[in-house]
Every structure is written in structure tokens, then in C-alpha cells.
């Protein structure tokens, strides 16, 4: 009974955390849409081989935007959608979000390591914000919001 009461009391806090996370994910999805357009145009300058990133980037954009829409929509691991509003995300989509954000951070760390080794300087402010800070915040919010 006490556990249930505590869960009920903390639900709005979790819901707001998830709402902030899905808004950040929405912006990440928008960035991937812009990157898809860039990938579509790059072959004109770099040759056909540059087009290999289009499908991957477009796929990531769609998945990210779908995640932004579904996270917090109340779907559980079985895909049921009985909960309305901000009752907390399904476990599967939470795990997927954390995994995807972790992958973003991992690629950032690879690029950062290469930049430091080659140039002795870190990567720019925008990459730091979009590929490290934002994913870390999302992971923290999703973990906290789904606790």
C-alpha cells in the first residue's frame, strides 16, 4: 500500500521528466532530418559514394521521431496502449532510448578521441551539446522518469 502511494505521488514528477526527455529527442530527430537532407545533397559534391549515409541517417531520423512520439505515451513492453497521458513509458522503449543515446555518446567519444589525437583540440561546442550533453540529459531523465 505504501509503495503504491509513493508511486502515485511521484508520477507527476516522472511524467514531467519524460516530457522534457521526449522534447529533447524531438529536437534530436529534427537534427537528424536536417542531416538526412545534407546526406542527400553531399553526393553532388563528393560523388556517389557519399550517398551511403542517406538511408542510415533517414532511418535514424524516423526512429528518433517515433521514439519522441511514443515515449511517455504509456505503451508497455507488450505494445499495449491502455494508459493515457503521462503514466510513464514502456520498459522496452525506455531501454531502446537509453541504448540509442548511448550509441550517440559512443560515436561522439570516438570523434572526440580522434580530434584530440590529431589536432590536440576538442570538437566544437555544437557537437558537444548535441552529441554529449543532450544524450546524457535524456538518459538521466528517462532513467529517473522510469524508475
Amino acid at each position: 500500500m505504501l509503495e503504491r502511494m509513493d508511486t502515485t505521488a511521484s508520477a507527476p514528477i516522472r511524467a514531467h521528466a519524460i516530457d522534457l526527455a521526449r522534447t529533447i529527442i524531438l529536437v534530436q530527430g529534427a537534427i537528424l532530418v536536417a542531416a538526412t537532407i545534407e546526406s542527400f545533397l553531399f553526393p553532388a559534391a563528393f560523388g556517389p559514394a557519399a550517398g551511403i549515409g542517406v538511408a542510415l541517417t533517414a532511418g535514424a531520423a524516423i526512429l528518433t521521431l517515433v521514439t519522441a512520439a511514443r515515449l511517455g505515451a504509456g505503451r508497455d513492453a507488450a505494445g499495449l496502449s491502455g494508459l493515457v497521458g503521462h503514466a510513464g513509458p514502456g520498459r522496452r522503449i525506455r531501454r531502446w532510448t537509453i541504448l540509442a543515446e548511448g550509441a550517440v555518446i559512443a560515436t561522439f567519444l570516438v570523434d572526440l578521441g580522434l580530434a584530440i589525437v590529431v589536432t590536440g583540440a576538442p570538437i566544437g561546442l555544437v557537437a558537444l551539446m548535441t552529441r554529449l550533453v543532450a544524450p546524457l540529459v535524456v538518459i538521466a531523465l528517462v532513467r529517473g522518469g522510469g524508475a
Binding site: A34, D111, A115
Partner: peptide
Amino acid sequence: VSIVPPSITGILSPLGGCPLGSFLVPL
């Protein structure tokens, strides 16, 4: 730059990333 196949896939976006499947060669 992508590894498979080895080729230039673009230059860093103003929004901070390369096309997916590529890594950044800073110099």
C-alpha cells in the same frame, strides 16, 4: 569519412554530426 566503403561522405554539419555510418577526420 566512411569505412565501408572507404570514401568521403561529406563535411561536418553545422549541427555537429556526420552522416550516420561515418566518422569525423578533424584534419
